[in-house]
Amino acid sequence: MRELNEAIFYRWIEEVWNQGKEETVDELLADQAIVDYPYHIEKKLIHGRDEYKNFLRVIRGLFFNINIKIEQIVADDRKVIAFCSVTADRRRVEKNGGPVNIPAKTSGLCQMIIEDGKIMQAWCNIDIFGKSELKTSGVSG
């Protein structure tokens, strides 16, 4: 079971995030799944496949060439957690200018609860903006 859960995690990262395949969301995410992903100042949970696909479109609209690599993974018969490195290009529209692509590099840890081959619940801590946003805000701690 542990190996199967790890395989689901690897497939999720590769197909959903690196390739943007929404059909894999339908296949692997339970329709009643809850995902806690810190992408908004207010705590908002993602419920189910449709909300997740919408979230995926938002992020993939902001970032291009997303490449997530699993660096470390821990799994038991029900839970999987992986530490991942992330590279992507972020598109930003400059004042008085056109869009520019800014390379971003960051990392994250994600936990999934998997039952009967479906992702039931997930928590992700990935700084989707990369550390550069903190730097440009003058925050360095």
Binding site: P38, Y39, H40, I41, F83, S107, G108, L109, N125, I126, D127, F129, E133, L134, S137, V139
Partner: peptide, 17 residues
């Protein structure tokens, strides 16, 4: 991987939306 972005947002340093 702690959500320091959210922490700084709650402190009023960053605006995330």
């Amino acid at each position: 991987e702690y959500d320091f972005m959210k922490m700084y947002s709650q402190l009023g340093v960053l605006s995330l939306n």
